[in-house]
Write a protein that binds this DNA or RNA. Sequence first.
RNA 1: GGAGAGGUGGCCGAGUGGUCGAAGGCGAUUGACUCGAAAUCAAUUGGGCGGCUUGCCGUCCCGUGGGUUCAAAUCCCACCUUCUCCGCCA
Length: 423
Amino acid sequence: MLDIRWIRSNADEVKAYLANRNNDFDIEPLLALDEEKRKLLSETEELKAKRNEGSRKVGMAKSKGEDAVELMEEMRVIGDRIRDIDSTLAEIEEKMNNMLLSIPNRPHESVPVGKDENDNPVVRRWGEPKSFAFEPKAHWDIGEAAGIMDFEKGAALAQSRFTVLKGVGARLERALLNFMLDLHTEKHGYLEVQPPFMVNSKTMQGTGQLPKFADDLYKCENDDLWLIPTAEVPLTNLFAGEILEEEQLPFYCTAYTPCFRREAGAYGRDVRGMLRQHQFDKVEMVKISTPERSYEELEMLTDNAEEVLRLLEIPHRTVCLCTGDMGFGSSKTYDIEVWLPSQDKYREISSCSNCEDFQARRMNTRYRPKGGGKPQFVHTLNGSGIAVGRTLIAVLENYQREDGSVEIPKALVSYMGGVEEIR
RNA sequence: GGAGAGGUGGCCGAGUGGUCGAAGGCGAUUGACUCGAAAUCAAUUGGGCGGCUUGCCGUCCCGUGGGUUCAAAUCCCACCUUCUCCGCCA
């Protein structure tokens, strides 16, 4: 959410970046409501001042045993007017709030202007795609042949886009997430957290999933609860409504959670295999920072995610999302893409974003600066550290051998109970 | 799910209709005393919004949302939440 006062005095800048984001939101009606709201607010506050004064006089008169009927009647009339204005005001505020909640975040000045993913510049590459002496297979062929992935059972038990992992496959999933959590907690200084996998509407609104993206979420029928699409939601909201001390910042936390997404807009895409699932495992990293150092923190966060792939020795690259491809709440996002030999291309495996104060304002998370002074909104950052299911895919495809067996990356062997290959 | 008791400022805690944004205490900050510290004394010490002469004025906030009233922390209703007991349960 943006600050209405900032929008008021930077209307042209807002219009310009909305265009760069391919967003057609019109801020003029919002500005008109803002104008009207402030007018009504002064009016009702003036009346309230008058009423407070009058009520005080009634009190004083009564304590002296005097009659105050006339004054009470006068105050009653004022009270009625206040009620009218306040109810209009409440309507206007609700409208404004809904509008404010639908405006995407402002991109950072370092973000390249562009139309879609084709305009995302590559900022780093690590490793060379391995050349295979044979035709590399897709993970679903490798997984089914090895008896560790069952897509038919997934569909039978639930729906398409669900998979059953078995034996070494299930073990590999668990090995990967343990490996990632250990790396971030022991080496990168993140606090391990296990949050709820369901959250309420307010929490979903805090990070920006609601009200705009309800169609992408799974909702529980009888309760105000939603399945989380990413651990970013509960982790970032950990301090919602609080004022932190600057000494507590930066705060780093990480969590493994399953993630649930309806994939409503992705009907024909990635239908085979387990690249795009309704339920997938992810290790997430979240940082709460002061505004001064949030961009430095973003670079470190992205590096923390990249390190997972470096240690697993899987080729990958990092791109900076352009204005047209960025997510709703982000000011700057790096996507990390992993090499998938069967597709002969890089695919997203992590997304690391600085949301600046966009989520903080929605959640109302602030900190008190060291020297004292007014509380300021924090900056929030999040990044996959990394998507576990997709990492499993990347391992299978990049470490496959001609005979259909798969080598286990060295970094994972101890997590696999000493198993060095899948066959 | 049933019964009961609570939710007040950073913390503890008083306040059952009228100058109450809220006594008192603790903590914190500043000043005095001190070579320094402690102790002591004094002052200050929440947040949001709006206005303008940017320092002040106004307004709102005592779990949340409604209601009654000239006036609500205080009365009424609903909800959330914490604790205790019972039931159920991994």
